[in-house]
Design a protein around this nucleic acid. Sequence first.
DNA 1: CGATCGGCTTGGATCGATCCAGACCGCTGG
DNA 2: CCAGCGGTCTGGATCGATCCAAGCCGATCG
Lengths: 346, 346
Amino acid sequence: MERVPRIHSRIPAVAPTLADVAERAGVSRQTVSNAVNNPDLLREDTLARVQEAIVELGYVPNRAARNLRTRASHLVGMRLSPLIDGTATAVMDRFVHSLVWTSREAGYHVLLFSGEGPDPLEGYDDLLRSTAVDAFVVTDTYLGNPQATWLRERRAPFVAFGRPWDDDDARHPWVDVDGAAGTELATRHLLDRGHTKIAWIGWRKDSFIGEDRRSGWSRALRDRGLSTTGMASRVEDTVSSGREASAWLLDEARPSAFVCASDTLAMGVLHTLAERGLHPGRDIAVVGFDDSQVAQVVHPGLTSVRQPLEEVAVAVVRSLEDLLATPSYVGEGLLLAPSLTVRGSS
Amino acid sequence: MERVPRIHSRIPAVAPTLADVAERAGVSRQTVSNAVNNPDLLREDTLARVQEAIVELGYVPNRAARNLRTRASHLVGMRLSPLIDGTATAVMDRFVHSLVWTSREAGYHVLLFSGEGPDPLEGYDDLLRSTAVDAFVVTDTYLGNPQATWLRERRAPFVAFGRPWDDDDARHPWVDVDGAAGTELATRHLLDRGHTKIAWIGWRKDSFIGEDRRSGWSRALRDRGLSTTGMASRVEDTVSSGREASAWLLDEARPSAFVCASDTLAMGVLHTLAERGLHPGRDIAVVGFDDSQVAQVVHPGLTSVRQPLEEVAVAVVRSLEDLLATPSYVGEGLLLAPSLTVRGSS
DNA sequence: CGATCGGCTTGGATCGATCCAGACCGCTGG
DNA sequence: CCAGCGGTCTGGATCGATCCAAGCCGATCG
């Protein structure tokens, strides 16, 4: 009555399977499967026996087999956009960290992939068709997000970090940070310190994010009855642009403080101040956006708006879980409030 | 003679399978499989017919099934170490980018996971046992690398970014950057500019990497017959430590230049200079290490040693491929030379 | 003209976990 | 005495790609 040994029981390196555990515990495969996936279906003593066998053999379910059967991989895919130097990359990296961390707690792992060139859909298709990932996290939604529409058309589950700016009837879950609230916070902080002439350095008008952040600044000023005319400049997101814009504004509008759309631009302001022998924080206040590494280590410290990326990740993962649990899940948007990290520059 | 339709052919959302392609092309499954994996086994016209069917149906092989059968996942795992602020994180993020990019070309994807706490093995075990990844990339090898020994014992394929500092007979492939060569490059650069009193600010003596980088500085000085005594300081890797150390060195040793083990420390030096009204690059030269975002945007620009992370990634992936192709692959070490990015601070 | 050979093709088995239907167990309550 | 209970067991099918051994076919050679 002895069982014919499975081929693999002769090959030492191969991991134990469900059947091995079943045999050891003296139960059927089904029972072991239940012990792993629906423990409450088993009687206590049987469960204990099976678990013991699992520990003894060091059994871990084979993912490939499980994935095949259940049509789920417990992986979420995220595309790493091409490396462009700038604080945007740093923010994304921080987000990736948070996402990896949060996903783990939800039983998911993060699969990174890269798009070849400018085509933002590159890479998504293969992963989706080959059932390599259960869902995507989409991050660069600012480019008229073709991913969002494309993914929606293919009925691919995904959650976006970033609002569907240009698409009002978008029906997918997203999480974003309220940039306007951040710059408003920054501006009020400066107003409270007695500044009345507060300048804005932001991005070009066609940037949704830039205009959003700008609106927080202007709202805060208008609330106090202060004018914004002549106090704003819109440029590229580079240090030298920030430097030039701030030099121009200092000459023309004579502000006592700057609010910037990014730490990069704020660094440009610091350059100008250094060139003119002005001291940030003492002579002129400066506030950046993103609370990057740079803001933390630069000389007197750069006050900066900090995005709550950990919370964003938590919210994204939660949406992901809802989405995967109920395919009919209707997308919701969630806007999170940033905070202000005050340092020497203000 | 009509075939019984598969259940799933009634469910629209399910992707086409090998069998569907086979039926469409009028061949067997095996032939389709060969068309995908060993195209040269097929006659030209058959191949063309199958490929046509593949395109028409939009067929993409199911990963789970393939993984199950071939016992390979084409995923490499990499642990994201807990987020500690500092330039080390930035370097790793740059490396992750490069790795993702390079892996893709080799047909691999990168699976990120996170370790819970201080236990560096956390997470590895599950992924390995469940055959979720084919191999690992290990990055933090400086802590007496328990991962390396642990992984080796379990015969898990892995490649390290970082030398096995404390383990001479380590037999695993690794890739690292020659830190000493980097600081030597930096020091020679300063010597060439006429500096003769060049100070070192590095990490505590028990840091292998720190001592390695320090050796490049001292070697360059000794080669020119210059003394290093009293010109070195070893501290924690923080801005304030760098600030204090440089203040002390300026008072005691009066150097005209600093070489630092990190950009963070170099930023500390810049703080000291700012406090004393000294101009980096004009009065005192400063060189950092890692060529981080910070070095690029800080006021006159920080000259810094740049690690060739793209090359590292390429070498790592190449090792990975060798390793997975031939399980008996004997590890090799590869040391890459960094470069110097010269900016305003020197 | 038939035997042989190489190139293709074929059906069936396999990977390991899960799903499913049906049967079993000793026990209780009607 | 039988139906029903919950916990389990059993065998078989399934997911989709790949492996394997056998079979087929036309072409070449003696």
